Simulated scan of single mutants.
Amino acid sequence: MSATVLILPGWQGSGPEHWQMHWVRRRGYTVVEQNDWLRPRRGDWLARLDETVVDTPGPLVLVAHSLGCIQVAAWAAFSSHTARVQGALLVAPGDVETAEMKEQLPGWQPIVRQPLPFRSILVGSQNDPYCREERAQALARDWGAQWVSLGAAGHINADTALGDWPEGHALLQTLLKE
């Protein structure tokens, strides 16, 4: 049975030009919908991911962007369903421990730093305004994720104009083939 791909957008969701939504439209991947994209509550987001994992048959691969990466790490630390996940593509994690983000996203600190119990790839950028490259590399190390740098690609979102982002999809394919 091939794995189901679950898309985990970050804070404020992913708009129609975001590469995640291109993948949803073109490949039929499933978005883990949240009740409130603007005021994300950590417990609600973790519960929603756990419910989706339980309700989705077969193996899973997670594709997270920004706050979604922080969500995956927090979820993996408590869920008894992590064995269902064969891998995670984590893109442009948002550093919720900065002073500005602590204020805007209360309750998301501290970032869970324990190794993920599944294979993961973390894609970061040299000039991400929401997470310094060194910080993203440290998260990759802590989570046991393979580090991939996109160079100067900002927050790797719609503003980066990646469209369908075939390079990212190639990374996802390596996780799907496991």
Rank of each mutant, 00 (worst) to 15 (best):
P166K: 03
F78T: 14
L89S: 06
A47Y: 05
Q71T: 15
R141I: 07
P106S: 10
D55T: 12
I121A: 04
I7P: 01
L6H: 00
V31D: 08
L60D: 02
I111M: 11
A64Y: 04
H65M: 14
E97M: 14
T52R: 09
Q126W: 09
F118C: 02
T30L: 12
L89D: 03
R48F: 04
G43T: 14
A152R: 14
L150Q: 08
P9I: 00
D164N: 07
A74R: 06
A99Y: 11
W165T: 00
H169I: 07
W23S: 01
G10H: 05
G13I: 15
A88Q: 06
C131G: 04
T56P: 06
S125R: 05
V72I: 12
W19E: 04
R141N: 10
A138L: 08
S79V: 09
Y29W: 14
L38W: 12
P9V: 03
Q104F: 15
L122D: 01
S149K: 04
G28Y: 02
N35D: 15
G13N: 08
V61Y: 03
D95T: 08
L116T: 02
G28F: 01
A145V: 02
Q146D: 09
A145E: 00
P117Q: 11
A153I: 03
D44T: 12
E33Y: 09
Q86I: 10
E134S: 09
V24M: 07
Y130F: 13
R141V: 11
R27N: 12
